[in-house]
Simulated scan of single mutants.
Amino acid sequence: MNTPTHQLSSEEVRVIVDADDLHISPLRADGVTYGTPTWIWSVRVDDALYVRAYHGQSSRWYQAAVLHKTGRIHAAGLTKEVVFEPISGPLNDRIDAAYRAKYASSPYLGAMISSRAQAATIRLAPLES
C-alpha cells in the first residue's frame, strides 16, 4: 500500500516554487486515471510545498484530491507522485504570508488568502511505493 513519506526535498520544493509552473492532477473517480493537469499557485513554508484551491472546497481538483488522497504533480521538469494532506489551523497564517510575499503584485492575491481558499489548503508530500 502507498503511504506518505517525509517532505519533498528542499531542492525540489525550491525548484518547483521558483518555476511557478505547478500542474496538479488528482486521481479521477475511478481511482486509477489521473485528472487533467490544473495549473496552480504554490508556496513554500519550512521546506514544505503548499497549494490552495482558488474556488475553495468546491473546486473539482480539491474535491478529487481530498477524496482520493493521491495524484501527480508536474513542475520544472519534475514529475512526482504525491499525497494530498489537507491543512488547517494556525499554519494557514504562515502560508498566507508566503502567498503575500510571492504574489504581492497579483490581483488574485486577495482570493488566495481568503477564508474560502484557506479552507482548501493542501500540503503536497511524496508518495512512497
Score class of each variant (00 low, 15 high):
105 S>Q: 14
55 H>M: 04
69 K>N: 11
94 R>F: 05
39 W>D: 01
126 P>D: 09
102 K>F: 00
75 A>E: 05
68 H>Q: 15
64 A>P: 07
2 N>Y: 11
36 T>S: 03
102 K>S: 02
23 H>P: 01
80 K>Q: 13
128 E>P: 00
106 S>P: 06
88 S>N: 01
72 R>L: 09
30 D>M: 07
70 T>S: 06
90 P>L: 01
100 R>L: 03
58 S>N: 12
19 A>S: 15
35 G>K: 07
116 R>M: 10
118 Q>D: 03
4 P>S: 08
36 T>M: 01
2 N>D: 09
114 S>Y: 02
58 S>M: 07
34 Y>I: 14
26 P>M: 05
14 R>I: 11
85 E>L: 05
21 D>V: 04
33 T>I: 04
76 A>Y: 04
64 A>D: 10
27 L>K: 15
86 P>A: 06
80 K>E: 13
36 T>D: 01
26 P>E: 03
7 Q>F: 07
62 Y>G: 01
94 R>E: 09
86 P>Y: 02
34 Y>F: 14
5 T>R: 03
83 V>P: 04
78 L>S: 12
30 D>T: 14
62 Y>F: 15
9 S>R: 07
39 W>I: 03
73 I>Q: 09
12 E>R: 08
66 V>L: 11
41 W>K: 12
44 R>N: 13
59 S>N: 11
40 I>H: 06
118 Q>T: 11
94 R>Y: 03
52 R>A: 00
26 P>H: 06
15 V>Q: 07
81 E>F: 07
37 P>I: 09
122 I>A: 00
111 A>D: 14
116 R>T: 15
96 D>R: 01
1 M>C: 04
122 I>S: 00
105 S>T: 13
41 W>N: 04
15 V>N: 05
55 H>R: 15
72 R>Y: 01
9 S>I: 09
78 L>T: 07
30 D>A: 12
96 D>Y: 00
97 A>R: 14
34 Y>A: 02
107 P>I: 04
44 R>T: 06
90 P>G: 06
23 H>N: 12
44 R>V: 00
27 L>P: 06
116 R>L: 11
22 L>T: 04
97 A>G: 08
83 V>F: 14
98 A>G: 12
108 Y>I: 00
48 A>T: 10
92 N>W: 00
83 V>S: 09
123 R>S: 02
71 G>L: 05
107 P>V: 05
67 L>M: 10
5 T>Y: 01
67 L>D: 14
16 I>V: 12
48 A>N: 08
74 H>S: 13
22 L>W: 08
1 M>K: 12
123 R>T: 07
26 P>F: 01
55 H>T: 09
49 L>K: 10
2 N>E: 12
28 R>E: 10
65 A>N: 06
98 A>Y: 10
113 I>H: 08
93 D>W: 02
115 S>R: 12
36 T>V: 14
29 A>S: 14
76 A>K: 07
93 D>H: 11
110 G>N: 15
104 A>Y: 14
89 G>S: 10
15 V>K: 09
37 P>F: 04
53 A>F: 07
14 R>K: 15
85 E>K: 10
17 V>M: 02
47 D>W: 07
1 M>S: 12
18 D>P: 09
16 I>T: 08
26 P>S: 05
91 L>K: 13
27 L>M: 11
38 T>S: 03
71 G>D: 10
68 H>L: 13
60 R>E: 13
8 L>G: 02
100 R>H: 11
1 M>L: 12
4 P>D: 04
120 A>P: 11
